[in-house]
């Protein structure tokens, strides 16, 4: 069996290494977030934090729960697939407190041309108008029902 006469320097070396390891583990434990590595190389708790962000757009399903009259009107028209909040804006607050938070009335002269102003970049089959020629500045809802607009072709609806 090999015996070391002067082993003290080896013991000091091992002790210094052990202290270093302990310090490393202590700092690592303190500095690395607890959920880091739960699902991958990131903080697992971040998923829950991102998912907890409040919603601003309630979604048309929620709107249709109360406004079934509008839904019936929309369903038969060209705007059947246009979601409520596409025109009315985010209404999650209105769904939480329908009594006191009421969406503002919309100005169709501004609203409709956002989509329907003529542009050669738009798909050809999309209905487009030159607002000035089409209505000379009158609000669109003077003639069209915004929830269920119709397009007249050769005088027929």
């Amino acid at each position: 069996m090999i015996s070391f006469k002067d082993a003290a320097h080896l013991i000091r070396l091992v002790a210094a290494f052990m202290i270093g390891m302990v310090l490393f583990l202590v700092f690592r434990g303190l500095l690395v977030p607890k959920t880091f590595g739960e699902f991958g190389h990131y903080r697992g708790a971040a998923l829950g934090e991102i998912a907890a962000q409040p919603v601003s757009y309630a979604g048309h399903d929620l709107c249709e729960g109360c406004h079934d009259d509008v839904l019936r009107l929309k369903r038969v028209g060209r705007h059947a697939r246009v979601a409520c909040e596409s025109c009315h804006g985010p209404q999650a607050k209105h769904t939480e407190d329908p009594g006191s938070i009421v969406p503002p009335k919309l100005d169709t002269a501004v609203l409709c041309v956002r989509c329907h102003a003529v542009s050669s970049s738009k798909p050809m089959d999309f209905p487009q108008v030159r607002a000035i020629e089409h209505s000379s500045g009158r609000a669109c809802d003077a003639c069209h029902q915004p929830h269920s607009p119709r397009i007249e072709v050769n005088g027929k609806k």
Partner: peptide, 23 residues
């Protein structure tokens, strides 16, 4: 873009897809 992670977790679609008028 977070793909509206807070919405798709709740069964909603993203805000952009919700409002897109032409699908």
């Amino acid at each position: 873009c977070s793909l509206c992670y807070h919405r798709i977790n709740k069964g909603l679609t993203t805000a952009c897809c919700e409002v897109c008028p032409t699908g």
